[in-house]
Write a protein that binds this DNA or RNA. Structure first.
Lengths: 142, 142
DNA sequence: GCGTATCGTGGAGATTGTCAACGATGGAGG
DNA sequence: CCTCCATCGTTGACAATCTCCACGATACGC
């Protein structure tokens, strides 16, 4: 006799995740972004020297081939650029344009308000705990 | 100047979810199941009188048309049956076969051990807290 | 009865996940 | 220097998933 599905952390995780992603996608649509491309843009903005696509894939937990398409999309929208890396000419650094930074800020605000309904009912301390747990879950397997 | 992506609960949620789903799918593969079909099977098993596909869709947070395909798959595998509901002939109740119950138990054990690595490092109290938060996030929007 | 809503189903199109290649580059060891 | 092997970006193929719309069948209020 197994436990009920409502107690399954994996199920709860993916259900809540799907809900939040849906809400975020809806908010990002007016900026021409989706959760995935937005994540790439944010990472590019917060790295001083740009990030290689390999690093992006690792941090995001995605296949590198998906990152290619996401960066393609952002380049086409004029939000990031691919720069040749001096040290290693295999890698191509993803760096944001000034337009990219602007869109990132505006989109970030909208995304935050979009998830206020599902996530706002958690207190600050709870959110910190949740962040901590989710980060530890991620780092558990490397 | 927004917050770093590593602090974004939506991102952390979907990244952790993806990881757990990947691990679970790998464990369920030998039973011919995936996370989605497994969830349907578990729900069918724990409802005494079966569940309508509409109820399944609501609980799982999926589009009803997806549930159709999942139930089709489980029916083809001989794990559940569609039964006519007496009260409302529009609805079709999804009830497990005895084989379905057996597979559900075996698959459930494998799925649990598969997520031990990412989720096991959380203590019992933490897991309860996580469950509680994820459930509240879900019920926030109805 | 009649209009309206709901349930299951089917279909179309976009997005995502997964995996296997391939050329180009880097690095280690002889 | 040169050869072998790993890594990075990229492409392609295919399955799975999401999203929306529409339809027939049934239920329900009036």
């Amino acid at each position: 006799m197994g436990k009920p599905l409502a107690d399954d952390l994996g199920f709860l995780l993916s259900r809540a995740s799907g809900q939040v992603v849906r809400a975020t996608n809806a908010a990002l649509a007016e900026h021409g972004l989706r959760v995935r491309s937005y994540s790439v843009l944010v990472l590019a903005c917060e790295a001083a020297d740009g990030l290689s696509q390999r690093e992006l894939a690792t941090v995001l937990g995605l296949d590198p081939s998906q990152v290619v398409l996401l960066v393609d999309e952002l380049v086409a929208a004029g939000l990031v650029e691919r720069q040749a890396a001096e040290a290693d000419r295999r890698t191509r650094l993803v760096v944001p344009t000034s337009e990219g930074r602007r869109v990132r800020d505006a989109a970030g605000r909208d995304a935050d308000t979009a998830v206020e309904t599902p996530l706002g009912l958690l207190g600050d301390a709870e959110r910190d705990r949740l962040r901590d747990m989710l980060t530890r879950i991620w780092t558990a397997t490397g």
